[in-house]
């Protein structure tokens, strides 16, 4: 139990949390690592949280990322992130892309998405329950992360039930 020690993130969770001013959620991860390709994907206007470190791939990881792009039809950001997680021996990988999740799991990583970060941040008190519910609603209404109303309702009930437990 506790905060997450280290994780690799691709652009998805950063973009989605950024769209709702929810990047403080990332404080639940002590060390976030992203690739230079993800930073380029985010663009110059994106303020990367201070807990995020940028890493460059070594030659072997670069080859592996190229393989993932062709074999699994992943984008450069997703592929380099999976390669970086393996290079840095970091098991947790946060992405909202289904293909990236499935590829990451095949290569021994533990993939999760933005809602996992939000739920863990709530559990660890990084954000209050009220703020977590508000951020969940904002993810649904204001971000480009696709969530059905039914799924959001289900997540809301889980957060409320956990808080009462």
């Amino acid at each position: 139990m506790g905060r997450v020690s280290a994780a690799v993130l691709d652009a998805g969770p950063l973009i989605h949390l950024g769209q709702i001013d929810g990047l403080e959620t990332l404080r639940v991860v002590r060390k976030c690592v992203v690739t230079t390709e993800v930073v380029l994907e985010l663009g110059r206007g994106f303020a990367l949280p201070r807990t995020c470190a940028v890493r460059t791939l070594g030659p072997a990881a670069r080859d592996f990322a190229a393989f993932l792009c062709s074999q699994d039809s992943l984008g450069l950001g997703e592929a380099t992130s999976i390669a970086l997680a393996r290079q840095e021996r970091i098991r947790l990988f946060f992405t909202d892309d289904l293909g990236a999740r499935e590829a990451a799991a095949r290569y021994g990583l533990e993939p999760h998405g933005t809602l996992a970060l939000l739920a863990r941040a709530c559990r660890e008190g990084v954000v209050s329950r009220t703020d977590a519910l508000s951020l969940l609603e904002s993810l649904h209404r204001r971000s480009s992360l696709f969530l059905t109303s039914e799924l959001v309702d289900w997540a809301r009930r889980q957060i409320l039930a956990y808080s009462r437990g």
Binding site: H112, G113, T114, L115, A116, L117, L118, A119, R120, A121, C122, R123, L151, W154, A155, Q158, I159, Y162
Partner: peptide, 8 residues
């Protein structure tokens, strides 16, 4: 759904 379970 697994994400939320994991998070909590």
């Amino acid at each position: 759904k697994r994400d939320v379970e994991w998070g909590l």
